[in-house]
Simulated assay, not measured.
Amino acid sequence: MPTKTALVTGASSGIGEATARRLSALGYTVYGAARRVDRMRELAASGIRTLSLDVTDDTSLQAAVDQIIAETGRIDVLVNNAGYGSYGAIEDTAIDEARRQFDVNVFGAMRLTQLVLPHMRAQRAGTIVNISSMGGKIYTPLGGWYHGTKFALEALSDALRLEVQGFGIDVVIIEPGGIATEWGGIAAENVLTTSGSGAYGAQAAAVAKTLGSPAAAQRDSSPWVVANAIGRAVTARRPKTRYAIGFGAKPLIALRWLLPDRAFDALIRLATGTPRR
């Protein structure tokens, strides 16, 4: 049997880096992709092939897929991990930034999926892993644009699963909770830049404190929790459709399902320290 090939986007740090290493340990030929190849030197030194990839650039996406097919002849696993959190009040966020949030978190992932699907269909096998978030099931103040991308990714993944199951292709959604990566600090900076002054200033200060607090960093789960779940999913004969993993994911998703909207609103206000008025 030929060695299976995996492509992991956003592989320069955090979940993407850990996932690339985990799949490599499982015997895959792994391509780690990110905009900055220089941040993947350690991955390259460990035998992982690195690619420069901008998920918002169609030419870049096509070139990456073409290179992988030319070098290995197949793509067995796609992990759509590239993404970021654009935090700020819906009113304050520039519409161009809102579009970029969707371009990176949704359209980039779906366009890359479109490009790999013909190859997976031809080999009658493959797994597409979309990194969503518990934020694709719950919501927080000043995270509306980010949550919108993850809710969209959940729906697209569900529809895609039905479309491709007859071709031997699995679609898996990963819903991480709090993970110890750069994400929280970047989101905290974003929310203060976008809404730190003006009508939403008090909310922004509270959300930034929650996102960037040392206490949160200490309780957050390791990126390896996610990487190991992905490893289980891609090697399972029949993977689960969803894996809710990491700090807070399962209980918060369950509470969102159990509680009425207003009760959940109150819980989130309490958790984020945001004032009601």
Rank of each mutant, 00 (worst) to 15 (best):
G47H: 05
A188V: 00
E163G: 07
Q67N: 10
D54V: 12
Q114F: 01
G144F: 02
L270P: 00
A266V: 01
A206M: 02
P118K: 06
N228Y: 10
D220T: 03
L112Q: 12
G73S: 08
I253R: 15
L156S: 01
D54Y: 14
T194A: 08
L192A: 04
G178D: 11
S195Q: 04
F102A: 04
V30H: 03
F107V: 02
A254P: 02
L51A: 03
T193E: 14
L7Y: 00
S213C: 05
A187L: 00
G198A: 02
K4E: 11
I179Y: 06
S12L: 04
N80S: 10
D261K: 14
I69W: 12
A215G: 04
R111P: 00
G246C: 09
I179S: 03
R39V: 01
P275C: 03
L252I: 10
M40W: 11
N130W: 07
A227I: 03
G273L: 09
E97T: 15
G196R: 03
I128L: 12
A187Q: 01
S132G: 12
D170K: 11
N105R: 08
K240Y: 13
A215D: 15
R121E: 13
L115V: 07
G196K: 03
S197Q: 13
D220Q: 15
Q67W: 02
Y146E: 01
E17I: 04
L192H: 02
G212R: 05
I131P: 05
A63Y: 10
